[in-house]
Design a binder for these strands. Sequence first.
DNA 1: TTGTACGCGTTATCAC
DNA 2: GTGATAACGCGTACAA
Lengths: 343, 343
Amino acid sequence: MEISGIKEVEMVTIKDVARAAGVSPSTVSRALNDSPLIREETKARIRRIAAELGYERNELARGLVMGSSQALGLLIPDITNPFFAEITRGVGEAAHAQGYGVILCNTEGDPEREWSYIRLLKRKRVDGLILTSVTVESPYLKDLARSKTPFVLVSRSSRIVKAPYVGVDDRLGGRLAVEHLVELGHQRIGFIGGQPDVQSCIDRLEAFKEVLSERGLPLRKGWVVFSDFTQAAGYKAGLRILRRRTRPTAIFAANDVTALGVLQAAEELGLRVPDDLSLVGYDDISYAALPRIELTTVAQPSFEMGKIAAEWLLSVIGGKRRRPLHRLLKPRLVVRRTTAPLK
Amino acid sequence: MEISGIKEVEMVTIKDVARAAGVSPSTVSRALNDSPLIREETKARIRRIAAELGYERNELARGLVMGSSQALGLLIPDITNPFFAEITRGVGEAAHAQGYGVILCNTEGDPEREWSYIRLLKRKRVDGLILTSVTVESPYLKDLARSKTPFVLVSRSSRIVKAPYVGVDDRLGGRLAVEHLVELGHQRIGFIGGQPDVQSCIDRLEAFKEVLSERGLPLRKGWVVFSDFTQAAGYKAGLRILRRRTRPTAIFAANDVTALGVLQAAEELGLRVPDDLSLVGYDDISYAALPRIELTTVAQPSFEMGKIAAEWLLSVIGGKRRRPLHRLLKPRLVVRRTTAPLK
DNA sequence: TTGTACGCGTTATCAC
DNA sequence: GTGATAACGCGTACAA
């Protein structure tokens, strides 16, 4: 069977079905939408004919008249980061369960690109937006807020607008990580963050500072470094911290991908983890559990976050409820083998 | 600034712009589409007014009249597998460069779900489809083939239909992996595949058998196991092979995620890699390069595959060319530290 | 150079 | 119960 991938078979419309069934287009529409106005017998007949003809309703046309595109827009900074891939999976699951499509936009964390994607999504008249890549001052948030389209922030919140949000309690998460290190006896602890303008990162850093201060431990400027949530950046940040004359005996990296970069840096400098350096990540991506890696980390229910966000959005779209969403899920410390008592 | 996420600001239409500019809607349409019929001066004025009003054209309406939704459908079996995430990134890059949206569908490899997604995408009148999750006998392919919507297969091809395809030469890829092991002196080599009904997996297995036969090496049934491309399945398959009385000294896993599962199984059985067991993966996902892992693998240009597929599809959609696509990219052996000479 | 009229496929409203 | 008609927002022949 040879296929060119293209056939000029025109799409069958509601009119074709109507003609074949000997009824009017409106009757077909009602039958297919299971209106109580139509006799069961007629419905069945029309449905059969529609199926035979391979009819699929045109959602462009439907959306035009209904004022709804049956689609959600999803903005992700980096789809290759398993944390965001899991969120995407959660969103997809919830959306598809209600017949919704998900338009994915990989922003690479670039605000210009984000805004351009948002405009694309508005042109497509998506019924709602899920944002996972806002920074504290994302300039487009104000514009977005005054538009009709509902949206949710996931994992990253904003300081300038108070918007519907699903994430984990990052203060608590940061605290879990740092307290774990302190309890292992570490006194010289470093922090490697993502971009300093991401709220979740800021919260984790705040918790870090808080715990150090509570325990009377030193906060060295040189031990706090920012990167951008990628492995390469984590590697560079790791080198920077670990090459200092006095280096920390433990590091809290604000996400797993970064932590893996730090691990790489440590290995390269001949430092053994956890003997010479304890390391905690954040997210609990699947690769953190890998044998030989076994990264101690703070787990986030990423799949669930995506699902909750999409479900809330869909219920708002459906007009079911519109109470503001502010859901803080609980992070969970997962102790593996990159942390050990200070010798 | 408090935001509920919902505002009842109605979308501004081309009519509003026309009214504000004191011209007819058609003039606005032409101006915004940069028609040569409109005086530059008028265009500029209309554009300014449109921008001021925050006009964004309605692509639902546009799609209805133009017969094009400016969207591509993308079917992925597992978005959390970095190999597919990279393909997704490539597709997104190419699509967005031309103002296209990408509707992502995570199929979990379930054919029922795939077909249901394809129908969803047809209702949305996507201009093209990118499939990465077909099996050799995917039942829906024939139906798809007789539809108007163009499509491309990426990474996985089908036996029952000859369709536009982008992938790597998996025969060659498999050969590179196995020959590498043979040249290290291994004689007892095992194979762990994905689903046996995925063409790329079949090809890698064929290559495996071919090389063994050429070199006069034994092909033991118990050393060939299928799983499903996930880490968990790789782990189980690994245990199964490695617990046999006589076990192979080297294993070729048909993808990286599976290989990582095998690595886990080996560690658990107290086998050291590469001292007691050499291991080769396939894909070269970013986590394969991790310190402590350093998986020897066969690299695929996944990002590029997605990009090429989308670009071809878009050119077909644009009517530019419709010559059948059959692009076989070259795989590349990446030797790291999970393989070593047989002692 | 601009305006008018129609159609894209569907659903809602009002007849019958 | 079912059919005719208008409307959703836009692009495009055709007219002016």
